[in-house]
């Protein structure tokens, strides 16, 4: 359940087209310390794949990602 994950930073990426959600997350992850979590919402359905692929590339963790209607809601934890 989304409310069980405590986010340190929340981002609204709704309306942004690819690759901007990844760009914003990549920037935001540098502003949190290792172990902290970013929660974000986006409307570009591409993030369903792009965010997990980006996390694999950069060594971070997608704790949860799900589609809620037209919104994609996800949590990313900084691991490095």
């Amino acid at each position: 359940m989304a409310e069980e994950i405590k986010a340190n930073v929340t981002l609204n990426l709704e309306g942004l087209m690819c690759p901007m959600p990844v760009v914003r997350i990549s920037k935001a992850i540098k502003d949190v310390v290792v172990g902290e979590v970013i929660e974000a919402t986006a409307t570009d359905p591409g993030v369903l794949i792009d965010i997990p692929a980006w996390a694999r590339t950069t060594g971070n963790e997608v704790i949860k990602i799900e589609r809620e209607g037209k919104i994609v809601h996800f949590f990313v934890r900084r691991l490095k």
Binding site: P19, V23, K27, T57, T58
Partner: peptide, 11 residues
């Protein structure tokens, strides 16, 4: 970031 975006696609 640009290198990351390329690597993301490869991944």
């Amino acid at each position: 970031i640009l290198v990351q975006l390329a690597d993301t696609a490869i991944s």
